[in-house]
């Protein structure tokens, strides 16, 4: 569990790299600033790709939570 409550969830489980990151970027483009997005991914590469993009794009990485059979990556659009 995470202390963060997402406004929007992107379920990219089952998609191979770079699907989850692409899905996240697509969602970030469409939501308002301040929105908290939970990206659900089964691709371990997302744990590196997503923070790298967030740093470049200037959005906030809130948390990465191991949910057992997938990861939840919490992001706030800034």
């Amino acid at each position: 569990m995470s202390e963060h409550t997402p406004d929007v969830t992107v379920d990219a489980r089952g998609a191979g790299c770079p699907g989850p990151l692409m899905d996240l970027i697509g969602k970030v483009k469409t939501v308002d600033e301040g929105t908290v997005i939970e990206l659900q991914t089964t691709d371990s590469g997302s744990k590196d790709d997503v923070p790298e993009w967030l740093e470049k794009a200037g959005h906030e990485l809130l948390d990465i939570v191991d949910q057992g059979d997938y990861w939840s990556i919490y992001v706030r659009k800034t």
Binding site: C17, P18, G19, M22, I25, D49, W53
Partner: peptide
């Protein structure tokens, strides 16, 4: 390209 390399497939 949108991600960190030139194509989705490494």
């Amino acid at each position: 390209y949108p991600i960190m390399r030139l194509h989705g497939k490494q």
